[in-house]
């Protein structure tokens, strides 16, 4: 689905969104007030410029618009694979972006992500997965790594990986698997203003400082071990 179509469906009351390369930043009108809209498009490979462009916009919004909600539109093929990017500590810039998303949460800005096409590894970790809640459109690609590269790292035949990706939810690409495991709330047929208003309203009504994903993955049956293991390490109250 084209970015412009998605924006028109989500924000029929109007939006002014700028595109610099593959970086999206801007504002949109909703019945709940103005929201900040930002993210990436066209399967962006996250590099320093994109990460710092997004973090700058988050910091600016936090500085000037208290509690304004953030809507992240996620389409990233992962981190840029380049020596010059690594030379300047790309993990550092992605961590900086993630910390800015987290700062906004702590200062009372609700946030949600919508995966519009691709959500892959480091690109997804740096902002999409940091939002309070994550949603995905139908037919989106949510995954960790190109299977050829994965084959080289794991020393498992490429054909075998393709076969595994066909049926193993813990391994197979796909937003539905992330719903089962608690990291994505729901897969949407189509983006709509009604959905957005509903999701933002729900966010404003609950305390989102706590990371709920282990809990959700447990209750949905897709990630049964994480929650009890994490709990077993925390001492019982009063001990």
């Amino acid at each position: 689905m084209m970015l412009e179509t998605i924006l028109d469906e989500l924000f029929p009351d109007g939006h002014s969104v700028r595109l610099a390369g593959k970086t999206i930043t801007g504002e949109a009108a909703t019945p709940l007030g103005t929201v900040a809209v930002l993210g990436t498009t066209d399967a962006a490979a996250m590099d320093h410029v994109i990460a710092l462009g997004l973090s700058a916009f988050i910091l600016e919004t936090v500085a000037h618009h208290p509690e304004r909600p953030f809507v992240y539109l996620v389409d990233t093929s992962g981190q840029a694979l380049s020596r010059s990017e690594e030379l300047l500590c790309l993990n550092g810039s992605l961590a900086h972006l993630a910390e800015c998303v987290d700062l906004a949460r702590r200062r009372g800005h609700p946030s949600l992500s919508l995966v519009t096409a691709n959500a892959v590894s480091g690109g997804f970790l740096s902002y999409g997965l940091m939002a309070d809640r994550v949603f995905a459109l139908n037919d989106t690609q949510v995954r960790v790594m190109d299977l050829r590269a994965m084959s080289r790292v794991t020393k498992i035949e490429h054909e075998r990986l393709v076969e595994l990706a066909g049926h193993s939810p813990i391994f197979a690409p796909g937003a539905e698997n992330y719903v089962q495991m608690g990291a994505v709330e729901a897969v949407l047929g189509l983006p709509s203003a009604d959905w957005l208003v509903g999701a933002l309203t729900a966010l404003k009504q609950e305390a989102v400082l706590r990371d709920h994903r282990m809990e959700s993955g447990f209750s949905r049956g897709g990630r049964l071990l994480a929650k009890p293991i994490a709990l077993s390490i925390q001492p019982a109250p009063g001990t």
Partner: peptide, 28 residues
């Protein structure tokens, strides 16, 4: 660490994201 355990790619990616949130929570 080399990062996400690719044999359980999705669960690994989510686990990393949970560690990121938890580190920031401790620092906060």
């Amino acid at each position: 660490s080399g990062g996400v355990r690719l044999h359980e790619a999705n669960a690994g990616l989510i686990a990393i994201s949970e560690i990121m949130r938890a580190v920031l929570e401790v620092r906060a």
